[in-house]
Design a protein around this nucleic acid. Structure first.
Lengths: 335, 335
DNA sequence: CGAGGGCGAGTAACCGTTTACCCACGACCA
DNA sequence: TGGTCGTGGGTAAACGGTTACTCGCCCTCG
């Protein structure tokens, strides 16, 4: 149903081999012939069949993006970064969401997906995930977010420093009684979250501060979880004067709880989040900003580079965070 | 580098034709033989080559998602809906972002993309876009968000009713002086936005209300645009007592401006948005909720159905909106 | 008991590109 | 002037499945 190399070859009066060579810009083709072929191809509105090309070359011409979630705020920003980087290349992007790892598929989807792509970008799957093992076992180039060591190229954020930064900020404002809303129980937590706990502890130690274990609660990375966590923090006898939430979304939930209690962030309780979503500016929430777009573009770049010129080397890039001070941390509530 | 039908055929002691038939579940294969072939395929860890299959059948086995933006809040929710619907099918999802239509690509990307997919899901591209024309001209199944008439299957939201609903709500609260923050100048606007203007006008007429043209300003669908728009509204001699923003994101920006002016939504000025993002709950913003996930899943379902059993029919689905009343519309500011 | 029919399975052509291999031709050197 | 080398370009064999066509066999019906 389409025009093929054969058609172009016939019209241009050359062989299909020459058409192919001309189209792919080989230097072994006479410039005049190449120009002619290009012209004919253009006139015939020829578009190559990726399937056929993939079949012969073994290169699929696309990369797979694997992510456990699609509805988290950071995702779309990483995706935007990935997208902008991929636009230049001629690669296509295949999206696959692992989602709930409940029902085991008859054929693990990665096997199927692997035949369609040349490499993977993997977004923060917890380190112990079986999914990740399977993907790595495929032996294809992988660019992942969140380091697992050096067994693959990865982009990570200096979460330890970022978390420390948040605590430092609160301490600088005079707070001594801090609440922490973290994401998940350590048992399912990936490396990333662990780093944040370490960063918090380090900063607390430096400030000669002991954290009250009752003020360290889980928020499940959701707004509702954050709301519940804040509820818990406020319910105690001696509530914190400042709270650090491990994600902006949890901080948003915490803000809702505060509002319901008639409390104003920055006046009654200081609150700082982690992620730096655009919304935090609107909500006047102080936060540690993560360079999501840059994470995405770096992930894509690493993979594309490796695909273009395979070296087998594993690049590990660590990107910095930035403290954004807004109205939710004023120190007014520090005793 | 992989195990092919030939290998399976050899090991199973049958021909490749039989392997293919068994794997695809044809009934013309003896059940015992089929079971045996399946077993061998499983044992050899056989995974078919999508490229080869695509080449012979002409079916790519994937659908393309085309969207002009990837960083708008509604996108990820539609994507989540699409994703969940696609998970059941064996189709893969190819993401393509048209982005800024500035630099014309040598080969329009859709031509290339079209050879990789069996159909398209197109997200709200403005109706006059050349991109859309090109996609339709391809003659492939298309499922689009935002109707353009009945020349393709589409899912739309009853934006006219939704916008009316917002105005009705404000009027019910006693407001007579309304501000409107719309998205873009009519010239680039798609059908969707036009519907909203009609809905606003209808509701105003029903309420025997004349809208002050000075209180109708553009916000470019961004928070910063919304902030600027609100600035403009507040700068006038006789500012509105209530404002309807055509998107939640613009409403968020408006809230920021209000905060900077020491104004509280729901007390000093009522504010209602449009979209129903989860964040609006946190911000206590009244809004018209759109069923984004359902939009996404319906888009996907329509396309998948058409691909599975081509009818050529164009389904047009209109989904309803829902008013969510929160603290930002109390009527307190209505004179 | 022979012919016809149906069913299961094999043969091989084909999908559209790519590329290893080979060839023809002109130039250059001896 | 003949041999050699280099270069542009054609031939054809893959790549891995799918499927139209064909065939043999057994069952059944006349």
């Amino acid at each position: 149903m389409g025009v093929t190399v054969k058609d172009v070859a016939r019209v241009a009066g050359v062989s299909t081999a020459t058409v192919s060579r001309a189209l792919r810009g080989f230097e072994s083709v006479d410039p005049a012939v190449r120009a002619h072929v290009l012209d004919v191809a253009q006139r015939l509105d020829y578009v190559g069949s990726p399937a056929a090309a993939a079949l012969t070359t073994g290169k699929a011409g696309s990369v797979g993006l694997i992510t456990p979630f699609v509805d988290r705020l950071g995702f779309q920003r990483m995706l935007a970064g990935i997208e902008s980087e991929m636009r230049g290349s001629s690669m296509d992007l295949l999206l696959h969401c692992t989602g709930d790892p409940s029902e085991p598929h008859p054929v693990p989807p990665h096997k199927r997906l692997a035949r369609r792509v040349d490499g993977f970008i993997v977004l923060s799957i917890s380190a112990d995930s079986r999914d990740l093992e399977q993907i790595l076992r495929l032996g294809m180039p992988v660019s992942m977010f969140g380091s697992r060591g050096a067994d693959t190229s990865s982009v990570r954020v200096d979460d330890r420093a970022g978390a420390s930064r948040a605590i430092d900020h609160l301490v600088d404002l005079g707070h001594r009684r801090l609440g922490i809303i973290y994401g998940r129980e350590a048992v399912d937590a990936g490396v990333l979250e662990h780093e944040m706990h370490v960063g918090v502890r380090d900063a607390a130690e430096r400030a000669r501060l002991t954290l009250d274990q009752d003020l360290i609660v889980a928020g499940d990375y959701t707004t509702s979880g954050g709301a519940l966590a804040m509820e818990q923090l406020l319910a105690g006898d001696d509530p914190p004067t400042a709270v650090f939430a491990f994600s902006d979304e949890m901080a948003y939930g915490a803000m809702r709880t505060m509002r319901e209690h008639g409390l104003v962030p920055g006046r009654d309780v200081d609150l700082i989040g982690y992620d730096g979503h655009p919304m935090s500016d609107v909500l006047d929430l102080s936060t540690i900003e993560l360079p999501f777009e840059e994470i995405g573009s770096t992930l894509a770049r690493n993979l594309l580079d490796e695909l273009q010129a395979p070296t087998g080397a594993h690049r590990v890039v660590t990107l910095p965070t930035r403290l954004a001070v807004r109205g939710s941390t004023t120190g007014a509530s520090a005793r």
